[in-house]
Amino acid sequence: MGGMTCAVLLLLCSSCFREPVMPAEVYARALNGDVFDTTPVRGEYRPLRNRRTGFEYKCSECHTDFQNPVRQQDLQGEHAEIYKSFNHGMNTRCINCHHTEDRNAYVNHDGSAIPAETPARLCAKCHGPTYREWEAGVHGRQNGYWQEGPEKPAKRLLCVQCHDPHNPAFKPMIPDPPPPYSRFEARPGGGGRHESEGATS
């Protein structure tokens, strides 16, 4: 039906359908840079390190030298950014996730260490159903091949490539620009470009 209307309007509008439907600069915003960008929203996976401008420390480099504060608090402001933005529902304790002795690792339910290289296993301990869907390839994203084989790797994004563990809600994004206004279609609550042109001519 829509297509039919389209064809009809086309005829009515034969004087204008040769001109570009959409000015090139509208696309520029979206087509600028790499539109086929598969980088996840939080970037490539980075190992667990304390990063400050120009420096990278292993957690153990500080956390063996001083007595950890008994209570989690912003005593010296070392991780002030994390305290400030921290928002993980009822999961409010650093040590729910970070191991208190093996400082370079995460902690499991039984107090054993989860190696920092497998952050998904940390999330698994509280998000079982989501983790299982992730394992099945249904939560999160797979890149590469649907048909797996020796030369056909599929890469599964890690939880922390999409979710900030300290503030895990998926962040809003700036949308790419809308499609060209089709002059053959009315916009709900407004009008297609065709309508406004028609009104002035």
Binding site: M22, A24, V35, P175, P178, P180
Partner: peptide
């Protein structure tokens, strides 16, 4: 889905869709 339209433009690029007039397969 959060409506970011990333798919729309990747599709344009991958499938050599005309920029002018603009053609997009995904709405």
């Amino acid at each position: 889905c959060n409506g970011s339209r990333r798919c729309v433009y990747a599709c344009m690029k991958e499938n050599n869709q005309s920029h002018d007039p603009g053609i997009q397969y995904i709405k």
